[in-house]
């Protein structure tokens, strides 16, 4: 495992921890898109079906279980927790996320590494992950005051994506037969979606003012 991959996994892990911290200690999910969290729960459920068929490493298995468990519990908290669910910005979080799933499924049926159930689900999870952040970015644009934890959550997620791109470049040049076009293209699309947000995030950080996105 190279340093980019490890750093990518760790920033991904931290992003989830930041979100759980916000939910557990502050008992608030203000500014967090349930739509995006539901998409992530679906992304990890469909991608990690190979938990039952392929053993890669203890690290791999534990991380998969963490991402599965955390994404499902975040959705549960936002939907059902007596206190947390009251802070959910339901009226602002209106992105019709189910509409993203059908094109992703069709694309996965057409473009996959092999036409098997696991491979189609794997491709579907990558296409869906690429666009899963969209409801969150839309919610951020609508929410006037973005708290630090929400900003840090998205920042960490973006860092995770960028580090994975560096990891692919590194692996391409150091490993033989390391080619994953579906992962790369959908990963780059996903990373580009964050670029716009980061532009405003760093501007506000540079000027030391609260993050405010244009309408």
């Amino acid at each position: 495992m190279n340093i980019f991959r490890l750093a990518g996994d760790m920033t991904h892990l931290f992003s989830v921890l930041v979100l759980l911290l916000k939910i557990h200690t502050i008992k608030s999910c203000a500014g967090i898109s349930l739509k995006t969290q539901e998409l992530y729960a679906i992304v990890f459920t469909t991608r990690y079906l190979d938990l039952f068929t392929t053993y890669i490493s203890l690290y791999n298995t534990i991380m998969k279980l963490i991402f599965l468990g955390s994404s499902i519990s975040i959705v549960w908290y936002m939907r059902h927790h007596k206190v947390v669910r009251r802070s959910y910005d339901k009226d602002q979080d209106t992105f019709r996320h189910y509409l993203l799933m059908l094109p992703c499924l069709l694309l996965a049926l057409l473009i996959n590494e092999k036409f098997t159930f696991l491979e189609v689900m794997w491709a579907f999870s990558l296409y869906l992950e690429a666009v899963a952040i969209l409801p969150q970015l839309v919610l951020l644009q609508r929410t006037r005051n973005i708290d630090n934890l929400t900003g840090q959550y998205v920042l960490l997620l973006g860092a995770y994506r960028a580090l994975y791109v560096l990891n692919w470049i590194y692996r391409y040049f150091t490993e033989e037969n390391y080619v994953h076009w579906i992962t790369w293209v959908s990963g780059i699309v996903q990373t580009l979606l964050y670029a716009d947000f980061f532009y405003y995030y760093f501007q506000s950080w540079k000027n030391n003012v609260k993050l405010q996105l244009p309408a």
Partner: peptide, 10 residues
């Protein structure tokens, strides 16, 4: 090139 097939990334 062919894919290695092993999906060890998260």
């Amino acid at each position: 090139a062919e894919s290695s097939g092993l999906k060890d990334e998260l």
